[in-house]
Simulated scan of single mutants.
Amino acid sequence: MLPKALLTTLILSTATGCQSGGPRMAGLNPFYRPELTSITTPAERVKELRALAEGAPSMDTGASEKMVVDLVRQLGSEPNPMIRQAIIETTTQFKTPLAAKTPIAGLQDEDSHVRQACCRMLAERPTPAGAAALAAVAKQDADFDVRIAAVQALGEQKDPIAQQALLAALEDSDPAMQLVGVQSMRRVSGKDLGGNVADYIALARKQSAPTTAAGSGEPAIEVAERTFGWLPK
């Protein structure tokens, strides 16, 4: 059992905080003096990485390459997804071949939020390799929100593979996925065909856009238009 005096001191410290528990707590708290702790919180680490990213443009080629290699090594052993995302975001600020590959590799991260963030990074920096990676994610990722993010990012790609990759999104049975597919197809193709999903499917297949369902004489089903009356033009 703890001495009554010590219990009283501990109870009082909960009201004032261990760091400011007064002179008597100095001998009980190993972190009473800031210089005795070397713990870096995730928030502090993210702040450090953002500061590093801001300084990236001023680094020469050699220093940039060395820094990116160091960051990628950290990425492989970092357990915190928030920090992994910050590391990847930081590497994208460096103009090196390895830096360009990092967000593509991040699409395989175990955390879905990191994968979504990598989709957004690739949207900001379109490349043929990025388009191919996003196409695979849009089709295969197990997380719906990640697939949505990939389809949105495909809308910013200038590679022909993007238009072909959007076909899977347009043919998806989920109206939300169809909607995002239509929006991305408009950006990729530069064509606004209205809200008829079938027209965009035909465009993705490089066929003539149909106006009626085959053999029925009836207008093609406009799933996205019917479900989302606010479909942006």
Rank of each mutant, 00 (worst) to 15 (best):
N29E: 01
V197Y: 01
V137E: 10
Q164L: 09
Q164S: 12
F94W: 14
S173V: 00
G55H: 11
Q207G: 03
E156F: 15
T227L: 12
L6W: 05
L7T: 09
G130W: 12
E54F: 12
A56L: 14
H113M: 11
A63R: 14
P81Y: 01
D199S: 06
K139D: 13
P30I: 01
R147G: 07
T211Q: 12
V46I: 11
K47I: 05
L49R: 05
T90V: 11
A105N: 13
A142N: 09
D174F: 06
S173C: 00
K158Y: 13
A5E: 08
V68D: 07
Q178H: 00
D111H: 06
G195W: 00
A136Q: 15
A209R: 08
I148H: 10
L36V: 01
S208L: 05
S38W: 02
V114D: 02
A132L: 15
M121R: 08
P103A: 09
E110M: 10
P34W: 03
H113I: 03
L231V: 03
C18F: 10
P175L: 07
A142G: 11
A63P: 03
A142D: 09
P42S: 01
A51G: 08
M185D: 05
A123Q: 04
T9I: 08
G215D: 08
A129D: 14
G215F: 15
S189E: 00
E124A: 15
